[in-house]
């Protein structure tokens, strides 16, 4: 999935294209907002839980898209941030501090710290080495969680309470939680979109394509990437917070390296670098996973080759296909 074409179009989009680019996210969020209505009209209730879960992963995939799609950094340890967010939430709830306004700052702080420290080391390298090191740091957090015997260790930690938001019990109903996650997803989406369009974002995009040019123009490429890495980690931490509240359970499996691979696939599936592509990709992935796992317990035997075929034969992901249908061919 070469990322250049997607952004080439973003940058040079003439007016009609720009409308299409706005139309798709608006349509997407509009449909999501109507989902609970569909359930009250007779869709199975489990469907809403699946969609909620999909939106949580969409937040994580969106955050990954910032560094992977926009910044061009293939991070294979992104599930670590999801896991850190979930564990901080789980531990704080267990310790009787269930208030979101208390948990979220801690989640953001710890994710930022972990991202800053590991990012500073990872970003000293590039290419294949970067992929391997992010993977290794992800694995490190996984083993750390396994060793946390006070909080369930290998077996994970069951939560007997959900977070409150400013004292309100918003997460206790399915619909309430759904809208909270939707609001968070929309907020993160707008935030990342603003970041990408900012001065910072422009340099991040430029550095993906031509880091040498960017550095002789007076920018410290490593520092810019580190900022993106930290922001991305923090947003993924938010997803972890919701995931813990969604499953009422946290376990090391949340940050297994397969999970990191799945996040990459979600991002690429939707169309890398387009942000709403990551959201579409996450939703499509979770729905496909759900459907296939109902079909057979060996769904991975079907899913694995699908990924391989997808990589070999498609480019641009789902958003790329929509763009081709709507815009009559690319650049």
């Amino acid at each position: 999935m070469s990322t250049a074409p997607a952004l080439a179009e973003t940058a040079a989009a003439p007016a009609p294209r720009r409308h299409i680019r706005l139309l798709l996210p608006i349509l997407l969020f509009g449909l999501l907002a109507l989902a609970p209505l569909a359930v009250s009209l007779g869709m199975p209730a489990g469907w809403l839980a699946l969609l909620t879960r999909a939106m949580i992963f969409a937040i994580a995939a969106l955050s990954l898209d910032l560094i992977l799609g926009v910044g061009g950094l293939v991070s294979f340890g992104h599930a670590a941030f999801l896991g850190i967010g979930a564990y901080v939430t789980g531990i704080m709830i267990t310790e009787g501090r269930a208030e979101a306004l208390l948990i979220l700052p801690v989640v953001l702080g710890i994710c930022a710290l972990f991202a800053a420290v590991t990012g500073a080391i990872c970003l000293r390298t590039r290419g294949v080495t970067f992929i391997m090191i992010t993977l290794a740091f992800g694995q490190m957090v996984y083993f750390l969680a396994q060793a946390l015997s006070a909080y369930g260790g290998d077996d994970g930690l069951t939560l007997y309470e959900k977070s409150t938001v400013a004292g309100l019990d918003l997460f206790s109903t399915r619909t309430g939680f759904f809208y909270c996650v939707l609001a968070a997803l929309a907020g993160c989406y707008v935030l990342v979109r603003i970041l990408v369009a900012s001065r910072f974002g422009r340099i991040l995009r430029a550095a993906r394509e031509n880091p040498v040019r960017v550095s002789v123009t007076g920018f410290d490429v490593t520092r810019i990437r580190l900022i993106a890495y930290v922001i991305s980690g923090m947003v993924a931490g938010i997803a972890g917070f919701f995931l813990a509240n969604h499953t009422d359970f946290v376990s090391p499996a949340f940050m297994s390296w397969q999970r990191s691979g799945e996040l990459i696939f979600m991002t690429v599936l939707g169309g890398v670098g387009s942000l709403h592509g990551a959201i579409i990709g996450a939703i499509a992935y979770l729905i496909a996973e759900d459907a296939l796992s109902h079909l057979t317990e060996h769904w991975r035997v079907i899913f694995g080759p699908m990924i391989v075929l997808f990589v070999l034969f498609t480019r641009g992901g789902i958003v790329g296909m929509i763009r081709k249908l709507g815009g009559g061919g690319g650049a």
Binding site: L68, V128, I131, I264, F265, R300, G304, V311
Partner: peptide, 19 residues
């Protein structure tokens, strides 16, 4: 292909073969 494609395709193979 770029590293991203390589990572994804070989990841797909892992899912398949482990299962």
């Amino acid at each position: 292909r770029d590293h991203l494609d390589q990572v994804l395709a070989t990841f797909g193979l892992i899912l398949l073969l482990n299962q």
